[in-house]
Write a protein that binds this DNA or RNA. Structure first.
Lengths: 378, 378
DNA sequence: CTGAAAGCGCTTACAG
DNA sequence: CTGAAAGCGCTTACAG
């Protein structure tokens, strides 16, 4: 039914090989043959079958993007970063929402392997080190975006979460707050853990012993933040300020505070993490630690592309993504491929977090000028 | 390198055919053979190659999801609706952001055809009727989600946008506002057009002639709403109320209003459309017309699945997605397939919009009770 | 119930 | 520079 390369070959009066060559821009095809082929392709409305191509080339030109929930405003920006870059290299990205559940994640990874994706970007990882190691052994390249896995060698892009948590808390301390609570992210998530570490570090620097009662567990969601805040508000000594592990948590906390008839920052100061778009709204003006979300996505994509090319080289196929590669290894190295593998060492790209001072931290109450322009008029 | 069905066959001491049969759950395989195969699969860590399978079955178990921008909070929810349902049928979804640009859309559609996706869901359509017709002829099933194409036969799920626009405007009229402006969506988008129609209809019912100066063009984005509002505010007779074509537009308008030092709803009332998550925040409380976003996505996915199965039946392959199908046609109909095609007529599923009254419309100023519970405590 | 063989639509050495 | 042939890893009639 669909027109194949065979049909094109017949129509153009050449062999399938020739058609394939002009389609793949192999240089050594004479001009008039090329034109005849192109004309036939045009007339028949031929579109190559990527499945057939992939079967022989061993690359699907597709990657998987795993995240906990695209509905959390942090992820769409990362996803765009990934997708925009991937599109430049004619890759497609498969969307996988796991809700942070390891079974869902495992199921998706399995499906992705069946599809023979060329790689996977984990924006949320629940699989253990053993599963990840197995994935590596299978030869599926992957990179972590915004997450880390201490003690496990992988390419990753991440913001310095300890520093970010430190900055956020330090800012509150410098504003004079002392009873600073922390609503954490989900347990077992590196970013959450690191932000808390930064929080504790800042307190210690001010010789404050972090009171365990001030650390309440959240899960990076709005409801999580809401519930945690409710709990904090019900305690006898209400905190003066909150450092929420991410913006959605902060928004949830804000809801809870408002519901109690309290005001932010007059009654309780609030700082988040991520700088999602809604943080800058006039009616919110959340002070937060910004992460370069789009860049995290696009850098992760770039790292993955490099690994994919590397894998292809190893297999003796030359990558097409040269533009995205960090050159490494000469031809003489590659020759020895069988005796030794010259894999580029894993890269950890750590981006700096950036404290964005708005209204909820209460700095303006002290006449501190907000150093950030949020107007849309530019 | 990777283990194939051949390896499994050898390890289990059976033929490839048998392996294939147990993997595809063909019933007629004896128990002990099945077990031997399963054991070999397990031991070798075999994962079927979906590209090879797709090459022979002519189905990729992948669909494309086209949207303008996942960064607009409306889309993630639709996307989850699509993805969650598709996952149940072992389908993957490819994410495509077009920014509402027809070239990008065309490029993605081409890529999706190469990948031989089993279908496409358009959550934003910029392609003209001719291109869409060509797509149809190619045999690629597709459905529209949240968009319509007047005069073109396609399966679609949509909210009644005229009604929604009417409800929003009527509500403002009933509250006593008369100078009601409208910030539209992008030109050429059915949903935008229909909402405006609803707006005009409501005004007419109150014998008000919609003043062209009150209708300002937006583009469904926050900046678009912001700029449009700035323009409205610079006119000599400031409007009393605004009906924004969607929530992001409303949020942008809100920013502009705040920037001018005006208050919502005291100085200007505001109603949006979509009911994106941030609309319900305490600090925003945007009155809006809710669309069932998740359902739009999942219903679209269901419709698409039905079409895909239909296409397979036509090709003489039996669909596996029976559960999602509306049963139609008996065996005797299918037999005649060659002489006549019994395509199910296209379905237009129109969902009701729901006015959600919160704070920005100013109803509470008149002591009208808000009929909607937004607390997260439930 | 099981296997051998053909075929899906490409690419890629291998000859020429 | 070009073509014939093999092969990628599956599924599916077709025999038996």
């Amino acid at each position: 039914m669909a027109v194949t390369i065979k049909d094109v070959a017949k129509a153009a009066g050449v062999s399938k090989s020739t058609v394939s060559r002009v389609l793949n821009r192999v240089p050594c095809v004479r001009g008039h043959m090329r034109e005849r082929v192109l004309k036939a392709v045009e007339e028949l409305g031929y579109t190559p079958n990527a499945m057939a191509r992939g079967l022989t080339t061993k690359r699907s030109k597709t990657i998987g993007l795993i995240m906990s929930d695209i509905t959390n405003p942090f992820f769409p920006e990362v996803a765009r970063g990934v997708e925009d870059l991937m599109k430049d290299y004619n890759y497609n990205v498969i969307l996988c929402n796991t809700d942070g559940r390891s079974e869902k994640e495992a199921a998706y990874v399995k499906l992705l392997i069946e599809k023979r994706v060329d790689g996977i970007i984990f924006t949320s990882v629940r699989m253990g080190v053993t599963d990840l190691t197995a994935l590596k052994k299978r030869g599926v390249p992957f990179v972590l975006a915004g997450r880390a896995l201490p003690g496990f060698e992988v390419d990753l892009v991440i913001v310095d979460n300890v520093l970010g948590g430190f900055q956020a808390t330090l800012h509150l301390l410098e504003l004079g707050y002392r009873r600073i609570a922390h609503i954490t992210g989900p347990p077992g998530v590196s970013a959450a853990h690191d932000r808390q570490e930064g929080y504790e570090k800042a307190l210690k620097q001010f010789h404050i012993n972090p009171d365990p009662a001030w650390i309440v567990e959240g899960d990076f969601t709005q409801v999580g933040g809401y519930r945690a805040m409710k709990r904090l508000l019900s305690s006898d000594r209400r905190p003066e300020a909150i450092f929420a592990a991410n913006d959605m948590t902060a928004i949830g906390a804000l809801e809870a505070i408002c519901e109690e008839g309290l005001r932010v920052p007059e009654d309780i100061a609030l700082v988040g993490f991520d700088d999602i778009p809604l943080a800058r709204l006039h009616t919110i003006q959340l002070t937060t630690v910004a992460q370069p979300k789009y860049e995290i996505g696009s850098i992760a994509a770039r790292l993955l592309l490099e690994r994919i090319d590397e894998g292809l080289e190893e297999a003796g196929i030359s990558g097409e993504t040269e533009g995205a590669r960090i050159k490494h290894g000469g031809a003489e190295q590659r020759r020895e491929r069988t005796t030794q593998r010259f894999k580029r060492p894993t890269q950890s790209i750590v981006l700096p977090p950036r404290l964005v001072i708005r209204r909820t931290c209460g700095s303006y109450l002290q006449g501190i000028k907000v150093g950030y322009e949020d107007s849309l008029s530019l």
